[in-house]
């Protein structure tokens, strides 16, 4: 009797556990990805937070942490480079994202309407995206060279004096923007093209049959339908543009002066060149916060657009 009762208990327990697991399976299924996320995202962010309130030094081969509270915030307040770097970064993001979006959309529309060689245009416009950034920076650095660069040589042949592309503080950031537009327009072009080609052809045809002209078709059908695609493309490109590093590192190094200094390059200098790990961590956190604001804005815009639809 006793033995039977014990077996029943065990069966009951197993049944309960099995029921519990089945009932909450969706959460268990999420567990691996949550653990993955915690290890790869939350832990580094936690470390970054800890670093931003600490000073670290290598003593006898060991990394020693010293809690410094909000000292790095005080350093940030007095740092003359950060305001310039943030201003340049924001200017860079706004200009390049707008120009690339307009050009990308325009190219996407033109290529989608091309009756011949559409495959060729697609391939050609993708080329800049396929070139490694280090090669792009080097190529453009040589092209921009005031004394030997091909751009100024061509201008010279035309009887013009070429500008000081990277030596003029008023032009240095613009020079980097030109390279960025050349490099990244194809990224937006590809996304926009996918969006344009997925639009229902019947709607615009019906509008035309009803007497709408091209401007009206674009304004009332084409762009409203393409809006979600544009927003996602802008969000992705904004995030990438905010992290611009390689082109500026290779073309201007942030100079002359601080005329083309951007926040990612400055973080690199603080963290890896000056070995100010704690302060560098604070700057990285600051960048992450600003980028989060952009992401939240785009998410809000996306939801807003969806509600409008």
């Amino acid at each position: 009797m006793m033995a039977t009762s014990a077996v029943d208990m065990t069966r009951q327990q197993r049944w309960r556990l099995s029921t519990f697991l089945d009932a909450n399976f969706q959460y268990w299924a999420l567990a691996p990805i949550l653990i993955f996320l915690a290890v790869l995202t939350l832990y580094p962010v936690g470390q970054l937070l800890r670093m931003s309130v600490s000073d670290m030094a290598f003593v006898k081969g060991k990394l020693e942490w010293t809690y410094v509270g909000l000292d790095h915030f005080q350093t940030l307040r007095n740092d003359p480079v950060v305001p310039d770097a943030l201003k340049n970064t924001l200017l860079f993001v706004v200009v390049v994202v707008c120009v690339e979006a307009v050009l990308g959309l325009l190219l996407a529309i033109l290529v989608s309407r091309a009756r011949r060689f559409a495959w060729f245009y697609r391939s050609v416009y993708m080329i800049p995206l396929l070139i490694p950034p280090i090669a792009i920076g080097t190529i453009w650095r040589l092209m921009y060279d005031y004394n030997y660069g091909i751009i100024n040589q061509v201008l010279f042949e035309l009887g013009l004096t070429g500008p000081l592309w990277t030596a003029n503080p008023d032009l240095a950031l613009v020079s980097v923007m030109i390279v960025d537009v050349w490099h990244w327009t194809s990224f937006l072009f590809l996304i926009m093209l996918a969006g344009v080609e997925s639009l229902p052809y019947e709607l615009s045809e019906a509008a035309r049959v009803d007497g709408a002209n091209e401007v009206q078709v674009y304004r009332h059908i084409f762009f409203p339908l393409l809006r979600p695609t544009i927003i996602v493309a802008l969000m992705l490109r904004t995030i990438l543009a905010f992290k611009v590093f390689d082109q500026i590192f290779l073309l201007t190094g942030g100079g002359p002066g601080t005329s083309s200094e951007v926040i990612s390059l400055y973080i690199y200098k603080v963290y890896f060149v000056q070995t100010r790990l704690g302060y560098g961590a604070l700057l990285a956190l600051l960048t992450a916060v600003i980028m989060s604001v952009f992401v939240v804005f785009y998410q809000w815009l996306n939801n807003y657009v969806n509600r409008q639809r």
Partner: peptide
């Protein structure tokens, strides 16, 4: 120096000298 004196790195100086300018 050349007009781009504000953007002269080691490589640029070397190139100017090596090219006879």
């Amino acid at each position: 120096g050349p007009a781009n004196y504000a953007d002269m790195g080691q490589a640029e100086n070397l190139a100017l000298m090596a090219s006879g300018r």
